[in-house]
């Protein structure tokens, strides 16, 4: 069993952090499933600390203007736009 005390309230807290609204049914279902899944993930405790060799390197390019999407293309998928800009919800 996971030491994570999974209940609908905890699921709701994570959902808030993730900006996902859930209905009551989803909260209950996820609470039940997360207990199983997280206790399975806990077998990672048996993994020894292992040195990592980073394989990725930074790739740089000169900071110069180049071809990109125009304003119309950038806005074409927005549910709503105003004066050539994205329209988002009110910042309260």
């Amino acid at each position: 069993m996971s030491d994570f005390d999974v209940g609908p309230d905890e699921v709701e807290h994570i959902a808030e952090l993730a900006r996902v609204e859930l209905n009551e049914e989803e909260r209950a279902l996820f609470a039940e499933q997360f207990a199983d899944i997280l206790s399975y993930f806990e077998t990672l405790d048996e993994v020894p600390e292992t040195d990592r060799e980073p394989e990725l390197t930074n790739v740089m390019r000169p900071d110069e203007r180049r071809e990109c999407l125009d304003q119309e293309e950038a806005l074409q998928n927005a549910p709503e736009s105003e004066d050539g800009q994205f329209k988002g919800p009110r910042v309260s």
Binding site: P79, P89, S92
Partner: peptide, 19 residues
């Protein structure tokens, strides 16, 4: 739901709209 995708509407605060 702002640049693409399903809009969450424009009421309430923005976190609620995104959610």
């Amino acid at each position: 739901g702002v640049r693409y995708g399903k809009s969450g509407g424009y009421d309430g605060n923005w976190n609620e709209s995104f959610a």
